Structures are given as structure tokens and as C-alpha cells.
Amino acid sequence: MKRVCVTGAGGYIGSWAVKLLLSKGYVVHGTVRDPCDETKNGHLKKLEHAEERLHLFKADMLDYESLCAAFAGCSGVIHVASPVPLHVASTVPGLRIPNPQVEQLDPAILGTQNVLKACSKAKVEKVVVVSSGAAVMVNPKWTSDMELDESCWTDIVHANSTQNWYALSKTKAEMEALNFAKRHDMKVVTICPSIVIGPMLQSTINATSLLLLSYMKEEGRARGDSMENIKRPYVDIRDVSEAIILLYENLESNGRYICSAYTLTTKEFVAKMECLYPGYNYPKIFRGQTSSASLNSGKLLKLGWNYRPLEETIVDTIKNYEEAGFLEKGKPFPSTVTF
């Protein structure tokens, strides 16, 4: 029975990757900050087959030895762990990170280096590194009529000068992963999801779920009834996890893969939500329209990936938010996060 380790197992993407691996019969190692923290990781222990096939390891991406222990005996590693600021989907990325080097850049870049070194030591056969569409799209050369593929990269100088620390960290970490693979003849594949939405398994809110909640709740919006009409790419969390496992299992997967399903303006997305779930406090005024280049997932589709209808994502997500109590007034927005 093959063993696969998922870093950042308790997070939004990591949790779904663990769930899918367990359902497919894998023994799963999961790295978390504290295996005893039931608030952050208790949901993992409740997953089907977790009792017999899930092993949680206390690890930090900046602690090489802890990663070596977690990867021992694993044939594959899915590297998800990387800081995601709560405001990452907002229009002012990087603005609220007091110490970006310590809080964002080092954990992402040095953490990826440590993961790959530990994979090499453990003789891991294949690594899937979860990057981001932010490593593709942040480039002043890209115009709104362009369709971006895997040859397109975020401009590091531009990301640094605009203090887009998230995009900078994901770009440099992904470049390091692919270069490490070439230098050490290691099988490394990277995946770049767009804005990931859909139902959560974890109990603590994540950045992109806050974005969707801001479409439905006034306290998540900086200007009450109005929002900027930004054109954004989206993909369902379940489709992302399926893409990750596909890339791990498919012998022909190589290089990087964009993973995105739909591109809509805020107005278009809100209209779909309101049609399916009327009665919530949706914005009524949409200011301007900010366009950006679109993402092309053709390479991933050719490998056999599929994505579900957007309406299914919206229905399942809002049901999840209702059950979690996130749509009640006053929850769950931190006072510093608005869109």
C-alpha cells in the first residue's frame, strides 16, 4: 500500500487532498503544526479511513529534520503548506503583512527548499507542489485580451515593487521547485490553481472563503452595498484536489499545470449566487470593471481533468456556510479584512 505525505494537511486544500487520498486507499502522512490541536486538525481524524490509515506528524516547513521524519517511507509528497494571508483575494495584496520576509517569503521559499531536500533524502519518487495562479498572472506585460498558459510567469520585480508578497512568494517557490527537479533529476510537478472556492472541511475560515462570504454579507465589504466589479478566475476545491491526485498518479504529468475553471466578474458571480440563494445581503452597486488576462487549463484538461458546474459549487458552498454558521451576522470576518 503506497504512502503519500501531504504538507499543510489541516488547511483548506490539504484537507481535501487527504480526504481524496484516503478514499483511494493510500496510507497518508500529514504534516501539521500541532497534531493535538483539535480546533485546527480534529476534522482530519474524523475522515473516513483516517483511524487506520492517517498519521499526523508535527512539522514546520523551516525545520528540515521534522520533514525528514514525516516523509520517511513515502513514495510521494504533495506540498501544500504555504502562508496565505486572509486578504490575498483582495485588491491590496501585501499591504497588511508587517514582516513579509518572516511571515510570507521565508516559509514559502525556504520551506519549499527544505521539502525538496527532505524528499531527496527520503528517496521520494514524485512530488506535486501546489503553487498558485498568482505565480502566473501578476505581470504588467499581460493584457486583458490574453490567455495565459504554463509558459507565463509573474514578474518578480513587479511583484516586489508593488509589495505583492503572496505572488512573489509563490512564484519564487515554484521556480525553485522546478529548478531543483532539474538539478537533482527528481520528478516534480507543479499546479497553479486560480481562486479556490467550495465547501470547507476545516473549521477555521480561509482567505478565498472570506471573499465569497463578502459577496453575501455587508460586514465583509469595505463600502456596504457596493463592490468593485473585478474579473476573477475560480475553481472548485474538490476539482483542485482531484487535479492534484491526477498529477501525482499520471505517469505522463510533467512541468507545471494551470488549474482554473471559470472566469467571471463580481457582478456575474453575485447574480448566479442570488439566483440560487435569494434573500442574502448581496451588493447592489458594482463599480467599474477591472479586467485581467484569463487562465488556460488546456494542458490539465488533456491529461483527463474535469471540473463540475459552477452552480453545483455555489449550492454546496452556501450549504456548507449555512451549516457552519458563517452567514450569521457578525461572523466570521476579522475586523481588519474587508473586500
Rank of each mutant, 00 (worst) to 15 (best):
N114L: 05
A135F: 05
R223C: 14
C152N: 14
G279W: 04
I109F: 05
R223T: 14
N281L: 09
K172W: 07
S291V: 12
S253A: 15
I156M: 06
L301P: 00
V189R: 04
R232Q: 13
K141G: 08
H158S: 10
T336P: 05
G330S: 12
Q101I: 09
L105F: 04
A134Q: 00
V80Q: 06
N160V: 12
Y12T: 06
L251I: 14
E228V: 14
V136W: 00
T265E: 04
H43P: 10
G11T: 06
P278S: 00
D225A: 15
K141R: 15
P309E: 07
T265D: 02
D316R: 11
V88T: 10
I230V: 15
E328M: 14
E323F: 09
L116F: 01
D106I: 03
V138F: 05
A177E: 06
P83E: 05
D236K: 13
L251E: 15
G11K: 06
A69M: 13
N320G: 04
S214C: 13
T162Y: 10
K267E: 15
Y12W: 13
K45I: 00
V92C: 12
K329G: 08
G14V: 02
N320A: 01
C74M: 00
T91M: 14
A293M: 02
H184W: 07
G30A: 10
S90C: 13
G279M: 03
E51N: 15
S151N: 12
Q289H: 11
N306H: 15
F269W: 12
T204P: 05
E242F: 07
I109Q: 02
S194P: 07
I195Q: 01
F269R: 06
C74E: 01
R308E: 04
V315S: 09
K126W: 00
V337C: 04
I13A: 00
M273W: 05
L327V: 02
L246N: 08
P98V: 06
F57T: 10
A108E: 03
S23V: 04
I244F: 11
L178P: 06
P98W: 02
G220Y: 05
G224P: 07
